[in-house]
Amino acid sequence: MVYAIMTFNMLIWGLNTVALKILVQYLSPLTMQSLRIILAGVVLFFFLLWRKEWRKPSLHEWRYLIGAILFGVMGHHSCLALGLEHTTATNASLILALLPLSTVVLSILFLKDHITGLRAVGITLGLIGVIFIVLRGSGDLSSHLAGDLWVFGAMMTQAISFIFIKKATDTMDAKQVTSLMFLCGPLGIFTISLFLHPYGLRDFTTAPGWIWVIFLASSVIATGMGHMLYNTSIHRLGPGQSAIFINLTPFFSLVGSVLFLGEQILASQIAGFFLISAGVILGSGAVEERKRPFFQRPFLRPAQASKIEKR
């Protein structure tokens, strides 16, 4: 059941990249992102109230929450929206696929995680994959370079936010952390949009009705429900297995880009996809995780591990 939920969640997130590409063509990117995310935050907030799982964060916890809000919401979603204005959904999905590798690199730098030979090879393959995507097989920089750089910034800011989220979730429920991020972060995005796109709200009055359907689905289903499903499922999987599931997201994005946007997939992008996929599996530790005895895998509680080891 957990595997089925994770696969379905990756499908939702993959198609959400396609949805965002459509939305930024009709709505002001930053205004759209701020309203879309805060709606998801409100849905999560009332869900937690209904479950009686809401509590007031301490001042110590707010230190990490602020970092998660600045990087995980304001930085990530602002860069993603601005990037999708100038690049294809295909390129965006492939660059975002570097997220597990970037998280590994940051964990090595800031959380003192160790690096092995396989991980180093995986990180290198992932970077080569991005080069294939940006050059697009022509030997010249892509005409979508500005958008690609914005999306790369979105990927990096989200990776940085994982460091703060890791610290915040040591003492707080992951669903509450997500809800607070989605409630507070959009306020900053909306403030920025007032300077960059002062008339962004007007776009909502002129957008066709079917855009509202995509907007609500992206907000409530992909962002709100998607993160809730992810947070309730990820603790049951090891880091290696979760990385493999995350790698399904760009695949679904590629399929959605062809079916719904009519985008063409180039040979260099296919090569980049396989390089990044191999890089994620090696660099995230998936191969090493599969080699470890089952009772030593970190997603098991100590009591569970000791019982299995005795057997």
Results as ranks from 00 to 15, higher is better:
Ser58Gln: 05
Ser58Tyr: 08
Leu59Tyr: 12
His60Val: 15
His60Cys: 07
Glu61Asn: 02
Trp62Ser: 10
Arg63Glu: 03
Tyr64Ile: 07
Leu65Cys: 09
Leu65Ala: 02
Leu65Gln: 03
Ile66Lys: 02
Gly67Pro: 13
Leu70Glu: 04
Phe71Ser: 04
Gly72Arg: 00
Met74Cys: 13
Gly75Met: 04
His76Tyr: 10
His77Asn: 04
Ser78Asn: 01
Cys79Met: 13
Leu80Trp: 05
Ala81Ser: 09
Leu82Val: 05
Leu82Gly: 01
Leu84Ala: 06
Glu85Gln: 13
Thr87Cys: 10
Thr88Ala: 06
Thr88Leu: 14
Thr88Cys: 11
Ala89Leu: 13
Ala89His: 09
Ala89Glu: 12
Thr90Leu: 12
Thr90Val: 14
Asn91His: 06
Asn91Gln: 11
Ala92Ser: 13
Ala92Phe: 11
Ser93Asp: 08
Leu96Gly: 03
Ala97Met: 13
Leu98Thr: 15
Leu98Phe: 10
Leu99Ile: 15
Pro100Ala: 07
Leu101Ile: 15
Thr103Trp: 03
Val104Cys: 06
Val104Gly: 08
Val105Gly: 05
Val105Glu: 10
Val105Phe: 15
Val105His: 01
Leu106Ala: 09
Phe110Arg: 07
Leu111Phe: 15
Lys112Gln: 15
Asp113Ser: 11
His114Pro: 05
His114Ser: 09
Ile115Pro: 08
Gly117Trp: 06
Gly117Gln: 08
Gly117Ala: 08
Gly122Phe: 14
Ile123Asp: 03
Ile123Val: 14
Thr124Trp: 10
Thr124Lys: 03
Thr124Gln: 05
Leu125Glu: 05
Leu125Asp: 00
Gly126Tyr: 07
Gly126Val: 13
Leu127His: 00
